[in-house]
Design a protein around this nucleic acid. Structure first.
Lengths: 131, 131
DNA sequence: AGACTTGTATTAGCTCAATAACACAAGTCG
DNA sequence: CGACTTGTGTTATTGAGCTAATACAAGTCT
């Protein structure tokens, strides 16, 4: 499993692991049912403490990305019910509220925000095909 | 100057002060040129250390919301050039990128995101008039 | 059954952000 | 002029979050 961390680029190691695994799953490089590297193996590979990886896996489980089978390993979830849709929307809503509050402080209108959203989305999509 | 803080609701005190003053200015309850409470006065009112208020004022100055006249007090800026528009958009773009990345991880489509943005915006606007 | 591999739990140390205590510098305004 | 009020700077304390060390619990697999 190809993961790279930058020790102390400000982002906590466990968070970097979470992000990269989320990405691997989203990109289809890790498929549903597939087993992740065991905690100790990944820890040794990254030269970090097993607890740090364990924490990342715990977060991923809470996020519904993976499932842990206690003594048998950690596997990518079926993604069918990674997290109730309602929950996901709730999380996003929180982010959006913060965004809108900031936009208001900065005196940037709603139209502008939406325009930016569409624009950035388009940019992300186009660069995504290069992968 | 009416400001209320919740000691440790997770958000740092200085940040709460910053947010509320930003809000007061945005809402027009503090007009350009108006003098803010001196650091010590506000500190006593909120039962916090003057340094904490000083930090908030420093952030507000950096954000272009207020101007400090060293020994004469702190005043609301003319808001003429609070922050170059280009800068503000740049900051917002960063926030939006993070939001879209998260939405993608969660498998929530762009349409949904935009719908949520509009919906939350409407909610915020309507509750704003009740104040 | 028994060695092995899996994730779990507890505890400790370190770092850093947030806040406070206190001394300082300098303009204001009677 | 001179006391007062303003913001500034320096240092110390506290608390939370991150990582590590180490021991534990439990299913797997031959």
């Amino acid at each position: 499993m190809q993961i790279h961390i930058s020790p102390s680029d400000g982002v906590p190691i466990y968070q970097q692991i979470v992000n990269q695994i989320k990405y691997l799953v989203a990109a289809g490089r890790l498929s549903a049912g597939e087993e992740l590297s065991p905690i100790r193996v990944l820890a040794e590979q990254l030269l970090v403490n097993p607890n740090t990886v364990a924490r990342a896996y715990r977060e991923l489980e809470a996020a519904g990305i993976v499932e842990k089978r206690r003594t048998a390993g950690t596997y990518v979830s079926d993604q069918g019910s990674p997290l109730a849709r309602r929950e996901r929307v709730k999380i996003l809503t929180g982010r959006i509220d913060a965004l809108l509050a900031e936009a208001r402080h900065m005196d940037v209108a709603l139209d502008e925000v939406i325009k930016l959203v569409q624009q950035r989305h388009a940019t992300m999509e186009s660069t995504r095909t290069e992968e």
